[in-house]
Design a binder for these strands. Structure first.
Length: 224
DNA sequence: GCGACAG
DNA sequence: ATCTTGTCGC
């Protein structure tokens, strides 16, 4: 699958910031999904010197959560890690992995934030807008916003707030286990996003999509 | 100046 | 993200 539009990746920090603010206007924070048959997870791992990355996209059957297809690619890092500009670092390699996938997913779960971002444009938003596909941001830690601790039962959640605005949910995917940070990526509502994350996390803290993608990149990195 | 800071 | 030992628990 390919992006619906192109934009350069060889940018400096200031240029990336401008482009980010431009693209942020295109995010749709409402349900605009079709039937969800396939759901993809994606992740990136880095090598020792940190100038190479391995990206993976794993497509699962939304009903059985069985792996349908896996794509793993290697690429060079074109951009450093800068909090708030994370997508400019990981998206080039992820796009390469998506380009090789045959089973077009109906929804993609990202390892990072969606609109729970200082300029409302985390990795999940960037990927969603670039490929015009519904996405969810599901991070292991917080980047932006403040919240209260949610209840301890699976499914309990509390809003992530920034300036009176709800930018995401702190969601407990397993009882008495550290919660995850869920936010809208593109073409989905926060409620629907959380429902899917719960459904995708029947046994562990992180959704199966992320677990499979993480496993794939870690395994590929080990063989280098 | 001080703290915060996705992966 | 990655660098790392032992340890508690099913």
């Amino acid at each position: 699958m390919k992006p619906v539009f192109e934009h350069p990746w060889n940018l400096n920090e200031a240029e990336a910031l401008v482009l980010q603010q431009q693209l942020a206007k295109k995010v749709i924070a409402q349900d605009a999904l079709s039937d969800i048959k396939y759901i993809a997870g994606c992740d990136v791992a880095y090598d020792d010197k940190n100038d190479l990355q391995i990206a993976a996209v794993v497509v699962l059957d939304s009903g059985t959560l069985d792996v349908v297809e896996t794509s793993v690619v290697q690429d060079v890092s074109h951009f450093p890690y800068i909090p708030g500009l994370f997508s400019f670092r990981e998206l080039p390699s992820l796009a390469k992995a998506l380009d090789a996938i045959k089973t077009i997913p109906d929804l993609i779960v990202c390892d990072g934030q969606g609109i729970a971002h200082p300029r409302r444009f985390g990795l999940a938003c960037h990927l969603g807008v670039l490929f015009d596909i519904p996405t969810i941001g599901c991070g292991k830690t917080r980047l932006h916003g403040q919240s209260v601790v949610p209840g301890l039962k699976r499914g309990d959640h509390a809003p992530l707030i920034d300036n009176e605005e709800i930018i995401g949910n702190v969601l407990r995917t397993q009882g008495n286990v550290k919660p995850v940070y869920v936010s809208v990526g593109h073409k989905i509502s926060l409620k629907t996003a959380c429902d899917w994350i719960i459904k995708l996390s029947p046994n562990y803290r992180l959704p199966e999509t992320t677990r499979h993608a993480d496993h794939a990149v870690r395994m590929a990195l080990k063989r280098e």
